[in-house]
Nucleic acid binder design. Structure first.
Length: 224
DNA sequence: TCATTAAGCGTTG
DNA sequence: CAACGCTTAATGA
């Protein structure tokens, strides 16, 4: 269980719930901390919790049979994920790893299902979120087939600041260039080179171990 | 042939 | 000490 203030600050979807649903949510959530580079779960685990990133950064990925690891998505502070797995009551399809010190809010399946069955506003949020994600992953395929390296990097960074998925106001993210590369399907060198291109264009600014987005709109439209 | 990458290592913040 | 930058040998278009 977490405090009402805490829920409110880490879960923007909680703002529209009625009092009964809000209390239910609050009672069904626990918070946990994860050290940098530690795994939250592996593929095949039954982590039956809808999960919010209270602080930190997570990597969603998997490892191929040959042992090569693939990064599929980065999940920033403010993001809630795992609804697909919890709804279907399935094992996890992908690995989750904390890329730095991270706090997660876990909502157990019973609470999630209760909200799903009883709260219209909660459902609205879920639909909006699923819709946004679908858009994100379709776009990813498009980028892969249509865009060059700088544009892929630009748009992947842009997605990390999607206002629906990450309803915070910061424009800064702590992430290494290597991780940014894994996220965009680029090598470390190519990432570094193209970050400088984007920086020269005034779309973002690069610092040691972090970057600040200056113009998200232009990043998202890069290459058009 | 030329460009790009992974890997290793030196440098820096 | 981890992130960055540079060099180099391998890879592949």
């Amino acid at each position: 269980m977490i405090s009402a203030e805490r829920l409110s600050s880490i879960a923007c979807w909680s703002h529209d719930l009625d009092e009964r649903a809000f209390e239910r949510a609050r009672n069904g959530i626990v918070e946990r901390s994860y050290a940098k580079d530690s795994y939250i779960c592996h593929r095949g685990d039954h982590l039956n919790a809808w999960t919010g990133v209270s602080s930190g950064l997570i990597k969603l990925g998997t490892t191929s049979i040959s042992g090569k690891s693939v990064t599929l998505a980065g999940l920033r502070t403010g993001c809630w994920f795992g609804e697909g797995t919890v709804l279907k009551d399935e094992a996890r399809q992908y690995d989750l790893m904390a890329l730095r010190e991270t706090k997660l809010a876990m909502m157990g399946r019973p609470t999630f299902m209760w909200l799903f069955e009883n709260s219209v506003t909660f459902n609205s949020f879920l639909v909006q979120q699923l819709n946004e994600r679908l858009g994100q992953f379709i776009a990813l395929v498009e980028y892969d087939r249509m865009l060059d390296a700088p544009a892929r990097l630009a748009r992947n960074i842009g997605w990390l600041f999607n206002p629906v998925l990450y309803p915070d106001t910061t424009s800064c993210i702590e992430i290494t260039q290597e991780e940014l590369g894994l996220l965009s399907g680029l090598s470390r060198q190519a990432t570094n080179k193209n970050l400088k291109v984007l920086e020269d264009m005034g779309l973002l600014s690069v610092m040691h171990g972090k970057l600040t987005v200056v113009d998200r709109k232009q990043l998202m439209n890069f290459g058009k």
